[in-house]
């Protein structure tokens, strides 16, 4: 079933690919399935990436030591507020960011009410090919990576990519 869905989506997009908007959005990750990986919630519970299957997911790799990430966080908070009810799951994966209480303190300060997980640097690097922070991946309901963002983004930019996937 999942395979069939992927195939259909793929065909649909091949048909649409004459549209320059779609073509320009292409990144090397396009339509690759999101890698399988398990991160941890702040209380230590393991959370597999596949848990989010069925939602549109924006995974944001960040760190409490990364100034450009801070710049982006308020944008992500706004994006999450705007689209959560329509099925957008913003997931922040904090990498190398100290104790859970430090991360919680940080979340409170920035009003981060989307889901925060803790990730291991080696996994983030090897499986998600993240070489710089912040990096975000936009994943559709089928679990396919639709876009990779390098560096801080604005709500406006993200919204344009997120909205069509929610429909």
């Amino acid at each position: 079933m999942r395979r069939l869905l992927r195939l259909l989506t793929f065909l649909a997009l091949v048909l649409m690919s004459n549209s320059p908007a779609v073509a320009s959005a292409a990144t090397p990750d396009d339509f690759k399935p999101v890698p399988e990986a398990t991160f941890h919630a702040l209380d230590g519970t393991p959370v597999a990436v596949s848990t989010f299957q069925g939602s549109v997911v924006l995974i944001n790799f960040w760190g409490t030591w990364c100034a450009p990430c801070f710049q982006e966080i308020p944008e992500l908070v706004r994006l999450s507020h705007q689209f959560k009810k329509r099925g957008l799951e913003v997931v922040g994966v904090a990498v190398d960011s100290g104790r859970p209480e430090d991360i919680r303190e940080f979340m409170a300060e920035y009003g981060m009410d989307y889901q925060i997980l803790v990730g291991d640097m080696s996994i983030v690097k090897s499986r998600f090919h993240v070489l710089g922070f912040p990096t975000s991946l936009l994943i559709d309901r089928q679990g396919l990576i639709r876009k990779r963002y390098f560096g801080p983004q604005t709500e406006e930019v993200l919204k344009k990519d997120v909205e069509p996937l929610l429909e």
Binding site: G63, T64, W65, C66, A67, P68, C69, Q71, V95, D96, S97, G98, R99, D102, M121, V124, K125, V130, L131, G132, F133, P134, T135, F150, G151, P152
Partner: peptide, 21 residues
């Protein structure tokens, strides 16, 4: 704070608007 947990000296390199691990 990370240092408090990890205890080893580390370098954080950023350029443009992103940071390396």
């Amino acid at each position: 704070k990370v240092f408090g947990v990890q205890g080893a000296p580390r370098a954080y390199v950023c350029a443009g608007s992103t940071c390396a691990p």
